[in-house]
Design a protein around this nucleic acid. Structure first.
Lengths: 221, 221
DNA sequence: GTCTATACTTGGATAGAC
DNA sequence: GTCTATCCAAGTATAGAC
């Protein structure tokens, strides 16, 4: 075999592999888009393939089943989100920062549909225990992000006396998911901003009462 | 026609009408059961009719479409819940009562699957704007219950300074919906009790700080 | 890797007998 | 009002050509 032929064959194989990887990505992005706009019930192989601009059979070639593709989409969203918000979190040093950071995160979530994807998959998990197991595995980054935010924003003494960081993180995720579902009924009335402000005031208040010592020595007003 | 015949015929007509009404109820209860256990995506005419112990065609005879039946199920759940929890609410006079009442309501919700039905319908509403409109109409009682609880439990001054009663009610409903969805991934780890306790402590704390005057003159400890 | 074609299944909805 | 039978649309998944 000539060297040129080998190179040619290698390049072709690479390009083919690249195309495959790219198709996988397009399918995942298509799944995310369809979960957002049509919900779990509307996330069929045909709908997703349509959104991805490719053939329906490729869903099964690349992922084996529709369910696997949807789980892959949720996993992708979860990881992307955790990676994107790490820097924002590191800047949190107290209740005020928490509100600003949460606003920023919420804006980004709304735009990219992160929470909508999670909410739809959580609802869909009700139909199948195996799917529930897979969704549970994907959800860890969400708790991780929430827990880190809470711990950086709220003095340890407050967390100890009111509720643990795990419970607080759980509540934050639950609140975001619930508000996403409610807000879609009436997109005009998103109450998230008002709530975040109130949460910030509460956290500051609790910090003052329980004892000033906390992760924010520079002090809230 | 003999009188006996007329009576017989009336009774028959009544019985027939009764049977129809009873079937409607059984279908609604079947829809509630299926929404709980199989989710929105699994709530098909055949599945619901199976749970109701009757024929699939009756779904369309009585409700015209599967979607209409599911909406009727949500409406029923919403009204039942509001009616059942009115008395519990009237007994609330402060943060401590709120926690006790909320615990009771949550226990009842868990048992009857009220919140699960709402969550699944909210998720399903994403697929169809018309369905979203119908779900939005069904949801008013939920906000009503939450708002009444909040107003009876938290001093007006606190609500004024932190966040309005409407926002608080919105947050409560969102929190319940989100926690329902999360809890199904790992039924063992229901954090609701811990959260309710923390909320109660927060409400009491806020009441103390903002000013003792409130709907609970008999006084928290 | 991607497409077309197709087998198979399930679900929504209606017609007509009882 | 309820059931059986049936039509039709849509979905999952696979086989095979390119």
């Amino acid at each position: 075999m000539l060297k040129a032929d080998a190179q040619q064959s290698d390049r072709t194989a690479d390009r083919t592999a690249d195309r495959g990887a790219e198709t996988r990505e397009r399918l995942i992005d298509g799944a995310i888009a369809v979960l957002r706009t049509e919900g779990f019930a509307g996330a069929t192989a045909r709908a997703v393939a349509g959104a991805a601009g490719c053939n329906q059979a490729l869903v099964f070639y690349h992922f084996g089943s529709v369910q696997n593709l949807l789980v892959a989409a949720l996993a992708t969203v979860s990881e992307r989100r955790a990676a994107a918000f790490g820097p924002v979190l590191d800047a949190i040093a107290g209740p005020d920062d928490l509100v600003a950071a949460a606003s920023e995160v919420h804006r980004a979530d709304l735009e990219s549909g992160n929470v909508a994807v999670l909410a739809e998959m959580l609802a869909g998990a009700g139909s199948d225990p195996e799917l529930a197991r897979q969704v549970a595995a994907c959800i860890r980054p969400w708790f991780g992000v929430a827990r880190a935010s809470v711990e950086r924003a709220i003095p340890g003494a407050v967390l100890d006396s009111l509720l643990g960081a795990d419970e607080a993180a759980y509540a934050v995720v639950a609140l975001f998911v619930g508000m996403e579902l409610l807000s879609r009924l009436d997109p005009g009335a998103d109450r998230t901003e008002a709530l975040l402000g109130a949460l910030g005031r509460l956290a500051r208040l609790a910090g003052l009462v329980v004892g000033g010592a906390g992760p924010s020595p520079a002090g809230a007003s």
